[in-house]
């Protein structure tokens, strides 16, 4: 099943590299969002805590505009049935999850790099903790949004529905992520973030398990 899943992931990746439907637009989305923030905050002194919030806002909206793509594309092109005939539901879910994981990590890496380059006031004191939180945050965002993307792909108003359905589910992750990032940025002791890291970890495990159990219902008509 893992091999099947990787093959599904490979298909999505090849398709994305071939068509470039999502990635170019997403990178531009990030650049535009950061530009808006920079213009809006020009000349303002921002605390690192406030900038942490900004960073997560950008990450959230970038995820909201990009991560529904892999399922919505299947539905829009009418290839859902083809994929159903090719692979087990679990393999499809896992493949899409890996794809979203790679996409969200690449996206967040790009966002963080731009953020660190352009926001002088954004100084990270504990880079180890910072990267760990970013990694767990990306994993969590991917695991929660993959099943929601599968749900909204079957609905009519896909674009608007995605953030509406995702936000309540993502909220605990966002709260813990922002809290832990603040700790990494504001140079408090590293073990202060321990409960948040535990929460991020268990969140990923629980949401992925629930998604695995429920994906069958969503995927089959």
């Amino acid at each position: 099943m893992i091999r099947q899943a990787i093959a599904v992931f490979y298909k999505d990746l090849a398709s994305e590299l071939r068509t470039r439907y999502a990635i170019n637009a997403l990178l531009m989305f990030v650049v535009v969002t950061l530009a808006v923030i920079m213009f809006a905050l020009a000349g303002e002194t921002m605390t690192p805590g406030a900038l942490t919030g900004m960073l997560w806002v950008v990450m959230f909206f970038a995820a909201m505009s990009g991560l529904s793509r892999s399922f919505v594309a299947e539905e829009e092109r009418g290839t859902t049935m083809t994929l159903q005939l090719l692979a087990k539901p679990m393999a499809v879910y896992l493949g899409k999850l890996i794809f979203n994981l790679v996409l969200v990590m690449a996206l967040n890496l790009f966002i963080i790099a731009l953020f660190l380059l352009t926001m002088d006031q954004f100084v990270v004191h504990q880079f180890g903790l910072f990267w760990l939180v970013m990694l767990l945050g990306s994993l969590g965002i991917a695991s929660a949004t993959t099943i929601i993307a599968a749900i909204i792909a079957k609905a009519n108003t896909k674009g608007t529905l995605f953030p509406v359905l995702s936000f309540p589910v993502l909220l605990p992750l966002l709260m813990a992520g922002i809290n832990a990032t603040k700790i990494a940025v504001e140079d408090v002791r590293w073990d202060a973030a321990w409960p948040d890291l535990q929460l991020l970890g268990s969140y990923i495990v629980v949401i992925t398990t629930v998604s695995f159990l429920l994906f069958d219902f969503v995927w089959k008509d």
């Binding site: 091999r3 099947q4 090849a14 398709s15 083809t82 090719l86 692979a87």
Partner: peptide, 28 residues
């Protein structure tokens, strides 16, 4: 099972050979 239907859409951004390679890969 093999399934042929007019409402079945294949991955149209790939060539015929790429499509075959893709299916073979997913089917192992």
């Amino acid at each position: 099972m093999g399934y042929v239907a007019p409402y079945l859409t294949l991955y149209e951004e790939f060539s015929a050979e790429e499509n075959i390679a893709l299916y073979a890969r997913i089917r192992g």
